[in-house]
């Protein structure tokens, strides 16, 4: 594994320019959204001269490049700006909300993997079998149905009719005392605190939104698994293994090993995408996560929460991609050596 440190260093060197590029792009994009925050902040009765004064105080009268440089300078000091809606620093807002989203998305993705990968393998193993047909239909359905609709359906069945699930109002029961924040993940924090009530309450609140995300996102994972597994099983090396009389289980295992990189890729892409992509599910379940926060920012010309969210999401995605690159490196001897 002598090449791994070198490989990692090379990957890390890309991180800073990548982040800079993402920030520049999203800054410009967000600035093209019409609307002056000063007008929104002061309300409809504001005088023009007080609007002008606030605009000046916020630095909004400066040219765009200057505004960007000021933002970068503040960023270097750990200041992500202030949200005028919550009147709090964006950093502390995001530290409150980001773990909620990550917890939701992580569990959702785990469920998606647990459904998608085995289903994809099974349907690639037995073409035209009942399993393969069900898988195909499943892929079609998840592609066609919106996630919030599934969420509403689950709420209707498991909360309204059956009463098994708690009300879709946040991450934990109001009556349960939340554990002190360590990681921000309620499931982990409650366990660290030894608070089982909080743990089970957090889990029960997670079930429906996680199921919603899992059921929908299993679709693309299943399709990718199916197609790469199929390709690997039809490849020359699999055929040669069959021709050499290797047991079917071994042939399957080798094919899966070869199919893993593309499967990992789609999972990592989904992971990054879901941070923002889960926002509708967050809204349906009143999750109070980072996606909801960012959308509120976009709707109210509150640019710092949006930029902060983009920055957090970008760092998170790049971190996930880095992990995937390491996994690639370990899986495939052809990479980076």
């Amino acid at each position: 594994m002598s090449g791994l440190p070198k490989f990692l260093l090379r990957r890390l060197a890309y991180l800073i320019p990548q982040l800079f590029g993402i920030l520049l792009l999203s800054f410009c994009l967000i600035k093209t959204i019409p609307g002056n925050p000063a007008v929104l902040m002061l309300g409809p009765m504001a005088q023009p001269d007080s609007i002008a004064a606030l605009t000046k105080r916020l630095g909004l009268d400066q040219p765009l490049p200057v505004q960007f440089l000021i933002y970068l300078k503040d960023l270097a000091h750990g200041d992500l700006g202030t949200s005028w809606q919550t009147t709090r620093p964006v950093l502390s807002d995001l530290i409150d909300r980001f773990p909620a989203t990550i917890e939701l998305v992580t569990f959702g993705l785990l469920v998606a993997i647990l459904i998608g990968v085995p289903l994809g393998i099974l349907s690639a193993m037995r073409q035209k079998s009942v399993t393969a047909r069900i898988a195909e239909l499943y892929g079609l359905v998840t592609g066609a149905l919106p996630d919030f609709w599934i969420g509403l359906l689950l709420i209707f069945v498991f909360y309204t009719i059956l009463g098994w699930a708690p009300a879709p109002l946040g991450r934990i029961d109001i009556a349960v005392i939340a554990p002190p924040t360590v990681t921000g993940f309620l499931t982990i924090d409650s366990l660290l605190d030894g608070n089982l009530d909080a743990f089970f309450s957090a889990i029960s609140h997670l079930v429906l939104p996680v199921l919603t995300l899992g059921l929908i996102n299993a679709g693309p994972i299943m399709k990718m698994t199916h197609s790469t597994m199929e390709r690997m099983l039809q490849s020359d090396f699999s055929r040669f293994e069959v021709m050499s009389g290797l047991p079917r289980r071994l042939v399957m295992r080798h094919a899966l090993h070869n199919a893993l990189p593309p499967i990992l890729t789609i999972i990592s892409v989904l992971y990054g995408f879901l941070l923002g992509g889960a926002v509708l599910v967050e809204i349906v379940f009143s999750w109070g996560g980072a996606g909801q926060y960012a959308v509120q920012g976009v709707l109210n010309a509150d640019i710092y929460p949006v930029l902060g969210f983009v920055l957090f999401a970008a760092v998170f995605s790049l971190f996930v991609y880095l992990l995937v690159d390491i996994a690639y490196f370990l899986l495939d001897p052809r990479i980076g050596r």
């Binding site: 020359d236 090396f237 040669f240 293994e241 001897p333």
Partner: peptide, 18 residues
């Protein structure tokens, strides 16, 4: 593989790359 085996034209493709 044990009693009959076969060799074909594309040796690099026949081997498991991993």
């Amino acid at each position: 593989g044990a009693r009959i085996s076969m060799i074909t034209a594309n040796p690099r493709g026949e081997l498991n790359p991993l």
